[in-house]
Design a binder for these strands. Sequence first.
RNA 1: GUAGCCGUAGCUCAAUUGGUAGAGCCCCGCAUUGUGGUUGCGGUUGUUGUGGGUUCGAGUCCCAUCGGUUACC
Length: 373
Amino acid sequence: MKFTVQSKDKNSLARTGILETDHSTINTPVFMPVGTHGVVKSISPNELYDLDTNIMLSNTYHLYLRPGTDIIQENGGLHQFLNWSNSILTDSGGYQVFSLNKMNKITDDGVHFKSHLDGSMHFFTPEVSMEVQQKLGSDIIMAFDYCPPADCSKKELKRASDLTCEWTKRAYNYLKTHDRLYDHQQTLFPIIQGGINKDERLKCVDQMLPFIDGGIAIGGLSVGEKKEPMFDTVQLLGESISEDYARYLMGVGKPTDIVKSVLRGVDMFDCVLPTRNARNGQIFTSDGIINILNNQYKNDTSLIDKNSRIQFAKDYSKSYLRYLFQINEILGIRIATLINIAYYFDLMNQIRFEINNDTFVKWSKDYLEQHID
RNA sequence: GUAGCCGUAGCUCAAUUGGUAGAGCCCCGCAUUGUGGUUGCGGUUGUUGUGGGUUCGAGUCCCAUCGGUUACC
């Protein structure tokens, strides 16, 4: 993988860049749609290509449990299994251990956890996570990290960031001593932890330096902390991480969060919000965020979004989409998901355009004034 | 025709020996940030089939009536 900064904004930390993997070329800042189970729910690869998706996210934890690593390997790896020829980033499973299962035990060696599918016990170590991700064959491999909740004690926070540093070293060493299984390159992204504690974050950045190979991730944010310290932390890292590395803010976020983070130097994003909320009727339109299930759309014959690049949005009324959601029809979910992904991609396009044009700060100010959370 | 059982929110049903009619689903809002089409929070909804009676007080007991259902003739 190769990351090249293309254009730097004069008035902020924002920049555009190009991320090249053996599978695709990605313009940054980029939003990566989430396909936890190897599919962006209800959307086909061809539809994703049509939206200009160059990279999608998938998940080690889920794919390991089902269908299982061996089955994916027998299918020729994740790219072949999914029939997806662009890039894939796999999350390491560290976050799922934190978010999906409260019944787990974290030792210095790794994490014992219970499957959410059948209750069986499993043990993940940095090495296991790397082995699985090597077999999956993703282009970007995330280091196995320990993501503590925002309300944890200072002691736990320190333990989490220390363990994450140590686990990253082990992951790095594993990859160094094990040959890749496919003919394309796989790149490890270390994950910085440390919550909203400045010293912990800076210590993490420092300790991760030997393991960076073009990109690094900011983890442990948007886990319940307040917005202000969250963006202060992003700002701190935007200033501290070398500008030669792609910076990936994990799990963020709302469109406004993305704009604010790009201002602070972030290049890569992923978030379940546009796709998950689509399934619950929340649509990101050029006129703002709406919940199509609201009664006010019952008889609203206006188009879903006349400015969307999704044809469905220009073919159907809000009234019809609401009706599709009411009868729990798959098509409603597909339409909402496509529109939301397109909205996020349009936003990223706009962001890149404004940065290249040196108008990003002014544009973002206007955008943030018009879009209040 | 006779006997029994049942009628409670839009739906499925709760409600001690008579003591302020509730719950789930639906519906209506809000939330959702490295995804379980998820989950959480809040809200609306009743002449307890109808009409009488007993009682301080009736969804509950009594009478009548209407509707449903089962068994028997």
